[in-house]
Design a protein around this nucleic acid. Structure first.
Lengths: 181, 181
DNA sequence: GTCTATACCCGGATAGAC
DNA sequence: GTCTATCCGGGTATAGAC
């Protein structure tokens, strides 16, 4: 097993293509071409295109779900929450990309999810906005979330795919500044 | 002309559907159904699906282009630039949505554009980041831009589609705070 | 585990009657 | 200006040989 198994190679290729072209904008043929095989070969490893997406999202989605579960029971500070969001985004930029870029893929994912993605976002914003939020607090919370995503993606581009500690600190600082009135 | 002409009705319907489902995720049949006719009828008013998108984006795209042109020649403050971005986003939320959500539609638009959308974004970030920007400045600029978009969209949701002066001020303040070190 | 060939469906678009 | 009917291409997926 010096060469990584084909299944993993497919996931790697799909991750990159989905991030660049979106889920709907990427065809099975695109993935097969990059893999150097035919589309039929793909179906030996995955039963469907959706299954490829599923394999890609399983881990980050689980991490996000556990993060939200922790919100209810514990006392998570905004700093911890935003930091965790930055790390999840950095770990799987494709999740972040799909989450606010491909409504069709989103709808598909939602069907097999305990919580819909919209609910997850709403819960995150609510946690950041605090109790009894007015318009301003909700705007700030949405903005902080947007910074955690967009800022991290920008930092990843600057660092050739890796998030340096200094850049991470900067993104977090900006997000917190957006949140604070 | 008490009833608005069909052409405009189509644009209105398309704007809403594109924003909700994305351009690729919306079919001609979707639009026709909402309009109460068949798909063939649509083609009397527009030569193609792309033309509908084009009709939708013409004005906001022009506004954005003129904004960027003004950057070179004049001395635009970050406050003015971010304010203008907020207004453009509010005026046509579908442009904003398509701009960071539908890579396929984006590629299509890019073909008939003097400046590619990526260039336009890069130019905006550069203007916000100032001369000789380091990582931190670029992260802050990208974040401010993200706030101008996401914050405005959040505010529009809160205000049932309209951006109140107070909410606009809040978004602008948050964006400026993200930008400032 | 990968191939060739193909079924099948769906979305965009057209022809031509009314 | 809208209809019915249909074409066409592309994208997912399957059958079956190797």
């Amino acid at each position: 097993m010096t060469q990584p198994d084909t299944k993993q190679r497919i996931l790697d290729i799909a991750a990159e293509l989905f991030a660049r072209q979106g889920y709907t904008g990427t065809t099975i043929a695109d993935i097969a071409r990059e893999l150097g095989t035919t589309t039929a070969a793909l179906y030996y490893h995955f039963p469907s295109k959706a299954a490829i997406l599923g394999g890609l999202l399983a881990k980050p989605l689980d991490a996000y779900t556990r993060l939200l579960d922790g919100l209810d029971s514990g006392h998570t500070t905004p700093e911890q929450l935003l930091g965790a969001l930055i790390d999840i985004t950095a770990d799987s930029r494709d999740l972040a990309t799909i989450f606010d870029r491909d409504p069709k893929a989103l709808a598909m994912i939602d069907e097999q999810l305990p919580r819909s993605s919209a609910e997850m976002t709403a819960q995150t914003v609510a946690a950041l906005a605090g109790p009894d939020p007015g318009h301003a607090a909700l705007i700030r919370a949405s903005s902080a979330l947007a910074v955690a995503k967009a800022g991290t993606l920008a930092a990843l581009d600057l660092g050739d795919g890796t998030l340096t500690p200094a850049d991470r600190a900067e993104v977090l600082a900006v997000a917190l500044r957006a949140l604070k009135d």
